[in-house]
Each structure stands twice: as C-alpha cells, then as structure tokens.
Amino acid sequence: MTAPLRTLTAETDRPLLQVQGLTKSYGARIGCAHISFDLFPGEVMGIVGESGSGKSTLLSCLAGHMAPDTGRVIFDTGTGPVDTVTMAEAERRRMARTDWAFVHQNPRDGLRMGVSAGGNVGERLMAIGARHYGEIRATATDWLARVEIAADRIDDRPRAFSGGMQQRLQIARNLVTGPRLVFMDEPTGGLDVSVQARLLDLLRGLVREMGLSVIIVTHDLAVVRLLADRLMVMKGGHVVEQGLTDQVLDDPQHAYTQLLVSSVLQV
C-alpha cells in the first residue's frame, strides 16, 4: 500500500520557538539557568526533573507567566519571529489566548469553576470577538465531543465533573482557538492511572491531528515516553541532558539521568 505522506516541509523549515540563554533567579537562588533550545512545528518536548529542578520556573518563563532575568523566547508568529519576553503585554496576552495554550496540573487553575462547560470552552472564542451565540455553542459542543464529553453535559459546571473530565474540559477550552503551541504542567498529575491513560491517548490524537507543538513538564517518565519526541532533563536549574526521548531513557549519559531512570519502578 502506498501511504499519502503529509506535507513535511514545515518541519524542516524554521523553529516555532527558539529559546536562547534563558535565566531566572530568585535572589541568590537559581530558578533556571542558561536554557537554550529550538522547538519545531509538530514536536512534543518533555521536561523532566525532580521538584525544585527548575522545570516549572522554566515553563512559567516560556509561557510568559514570569519574566526571565535574561534570555530570549522567540516565537514564530506566522508573520515573523518575535521575542515574547520584550513584546508588549497586551500582545503577549492576546497570543496566549490564540496561538498558545496552557494546561494546568490542577483543572481548577485552568477552568472557571462557576461557569458551564460550554461557557468555559466558548470564552476564548468570545475573547477574540465571536458574537454569535448559536455558533459559539455549536463549536463548544463539537469540542466537548472531541474530548469525549457528552453533549448533554454542556450546561453543567465543572464542579459536577470527575477529575479526568475536568482535565479534558480544560484541554478543550485551550484548544478551541486552534493554538500552535501548548504548554502543559503535569497534565496527568493527580489522576487515576486508568484516567491518565485515556487522557494520554486523547492528547496523542490531538497532537497528531492538529499538528501541535507541545512543551510538557512532568516528573512521570512513563508519560514522556508515550507522549514526547524529545526530552530535556533538568537538575538544579540546569539542563543536564537532552535528546530523543527513548535514547535519553534507554541510554542515559548523565549520572543524574541514570539515577532517575534506574529509580523508576518497573511494572
């Protein structure tokens, strides 16, 4: 059988995100230091490390939630590369709710708990000017289906949802505007393993179908093995190793990565 290959020119083109010399300190303590990497369209990059390794600080700086001390975070906006660190706040926030998405570990941080599922999904649409109730609702219904939430739950508030459903709702709310870059902070943390599996499968499908680029922070090596193309291992605010996910996990080069990998319980 001959497989129609998807167009791959974009992948060899130019990076979607270029991070150069990113450093953030909390007084004398290092948050993250001298981080540089390129992320290409359609790539999923995992950042792993123990608590305090700087992975969350790095994610906050990348997503514009926190200003780095030095360094550049250059995003290809489609009209050209722009340094998001120095860009006007209004522009950055607009980008954060159109081209970017952020999935929080705790759905309560990423959802409006007092607003219905439909309203949660519709907010980004209304924020960019959608003013037709029927169309907003139709899009929300469609997105709920894509994250496997029944259409008749559209008017229920997230409070009435299970943890896994809340997380899927948060994903729908984020992806409704068709972002190109998604930041995820421990998206499967705090979920039962069976719920995790369903979420992982869903995320893989969405990444594939939408051609998303993803930066996912987690301490769960099983999650990155299934989701990430590339891996960055952090310790003490520094990147100690990076490479292809299964290479880093199967043939770790750095002492810390070897310890990390060998510490995982086999099942």
């Binding site: 706040e89 209004a90 926030r93 709710r97 409006r112 607003v115 219905s116 439909g118 309203g119 519709g122 907010e123 980004r124 649409l125 209304m126 924020a127 960019i128 003013r131 109730y133 907003i136 609702r137 559209i154 008017d155």
Partner: peptide, 19 residues
C-alpha cells in the same frame, strides 16, 4: 480593562442564554 480583554463579559451573557 487596561488591555480591553472583555471576552469574559460575553461569557456572563452566554451563561444567561444557556440557562
């Protein structure tokens, strides 16, 4: 207000119609 991010206001009206 500063950045004219008023999507939320329509969320309130959306909730009204939904309910």
């Amino acid at each position: 207000h500063e950045l004219e991010e008023y999507g939320l206001m329509h969320v309130k009206l959306y909730e009204d119609i939904a309910r």
